[in-house]
Design a protein around this nucleic acid. Structure first.
Lengths: 309, 309
DNA sequence: CTGTTAGCGCTTTCAG
DNA sequence: CTGAAAGCGCTAACAG
């Protein structure tokens, strides 16, 4: 392995001078600097990752923590999200560790600052009571949440689910539907809280509208109620409603309405859905994280309009 | 930060004893060991990642390099593959860095051993001339390829594409088709070579069969030839053939046959396809990588049957 | 079996 | 503006 010492000898200078030339934290005369740079190239010197991190303590490694617990395994939108994070990270010279389906226990251990050498993290899908978030706060690791954290003052970027739900209900109302059914996400996710709120708000504002909310744990596959507009929190739920309808001979779009909030795979969907731009979400979150790692400690709260109905 | 020194003082022993107790590489009396462990817990000691890596030079971080260059952005099968790698890695206490769409230049820089602290890597989708593979060999970083490397003697796990193609052609032949068209993957991928070979082999073995191979760069959207059996190298290509057929009024399954080799999203596909188990592929590759990192340097070559026609 | 000591490669004071 | 020297926290020889 070729070290900073070899470069120093090669140039007849002290190794601290090489270090200074490389990090740019101290003035080094342009000629010397050039000479050093040339030597580095000639010798193919690569600074040792561990040594430099040990000294100044940052690794240029970030983490993307997909979801707490491994309830839902396959999420089609992960790919564009991961790729967007990856690319944005790479553009600023960062590496990205990805975690999926860690339980609270595992997360606690894998994300300890001294276990994983991370400078910062993006957390997906916050829970109402989210131990990962607390942990990042305690460890003072810069952190951006994708979604709406329940409490605390940390940076996040989220789609405005309150507004989105309200918009969806109004649109369906405009088409004549009066009876609404929100089949929400899991209760422990903050997204469900926001969606229920937007849903409820719209219902109460609209003359003659009536609505109820249910959760996946209550979902039985039974034919949808005739005359109701179903809003499914994701494509899988929409698919199960659609299937149940088909089997019972109830006609979607006619006997009842079906709308899904986000679709993992956009081919051949038999119902209306909101498009959400996961790439943008990832890109934006990563930009925020990088800037936080560079010292911008002010928490930023972004409700983005990365969706279209 | 609480260090090994604090623990040592707390227990009135030398720090090396603490280190030995923790790493288990030297004998330490059970009572002392217990005492030390207790102290670690009490003081909430976490070994410093950089320091220990600097000393013994392994980081428990692995890399998953998705594909060279960023030609194809969205690959639905990435999610199950990534998640499988992630889980398998986590089970053996490894972190996973993911890279996607690096060009040769970027790969060269990001995957330098001293830039990214990786103990080993999984490389997806090898090219006929693959600089990443050469780089890993040069740097002597343990490495497993998912796919069939063109040359060299490194570990890989792959679906036997020669056999798969041959099987597919024979199946279609058995149904009466005699004219075959393979629309292959990009020329620079080794998978294309194998597929063309299996295709050609089957054609030559089958009485009265005739076949040609073409590549994406030659693909124009024109109606498929009547009476031909098309084998598309992936779902996207199959979709474009299907679309062209629909537009020209040619009927799939009747005027021509359409078969695709692997499908990213399995809902509502209008043609036959081979199912490939990307989770298994990732899991197996990761197991091999971990064992390689643990000193098993013997290259393993696995042609798995992780597909069903 | 335990403790002392010398590094790992780099950054960072702190005198020249 | 440059260079010697002292760590960062840990591991691994090497004596006791």
């Amino acid at each position: 392995m070729i070290t900073i010492n070899d470069v120093a000898k090669h140039c007849n200078v002290a190794k601290s001078t090489v270090s200074n030339a490389l990090t740019g934290k101290k003035y080094v005369s342009p000629e010397l600097k050039q000479k050093i740079m040339d030597a580095c190239k000639e010798l193919d010197f690569q600074p040792n990752f561990y040594a430099s991190s040990l000294s100044h303590g940052n690794s240029k490694i970030l983490a993307l923590v997909l979801e707490q617990d491994s309830t839902s395994n396959y999420r089609g939108f992960y790919t564009p999200l991961i790729v967007a994070c990856l690319k944005t990270a790479a553009r600023s010279g960062r590496h990205l560790l990805v975690y999926s389906g860690l339980d609270a226990q595992e997360a606690k251990s894998m994300l300890k600052r001294d276990r994983a050498p991370i400078d910062g993290a993006i957390l997906m899908t916050p829970l109402v009571d989210d131990s990962r978030i607390r942990q990042m706060e305690e460890q003072m690791i810069p952190c951006v949440v994708i979604g709406h954290p329940a409490s605390g003052d940390m940076s996040y970027v989220d789609i405005d689910n309150v507004k989105m739900l309200s918009d969806v209900v109004k649109r369906l109302y405009g088409r004549g539907w009066r009876k609404f059914r929100l089949v929400n996400s899991e209760r422990n996710k903050t997204i469900s809280v926001d969606r229920a709120e937007g849903f409820g708000r719209a219902i109460s504002e609209l003359e003659g509208a009536e609505g109820t909310v249910c959760y996946p744990d209550e979902l039985v596959e039974r034919p949808p109620e005739c005359g109701a507009a179903y809003i499914a929190s994701d494509g899988k739920i929409a698919a199960s409603i659609y299937r149940a309808a088909k089997e019972s001979g109830t006609e979607p779009g006619k006997d009842f309405a079906l709308y899904s909030l986000g679709e993992d795979d956009e081919n051949e969907v038999h119902w209306e859905y909101a498009r959400q731009d996961y790439s943008k979400l990832g890109e934006r979150a990563m930009e925020m994280l990088v800037s936080a790692c560079e010292g911008d400690t002010e928490p930023k709260h972004v409700f983005a309009d990365y969706y279209t109905l």
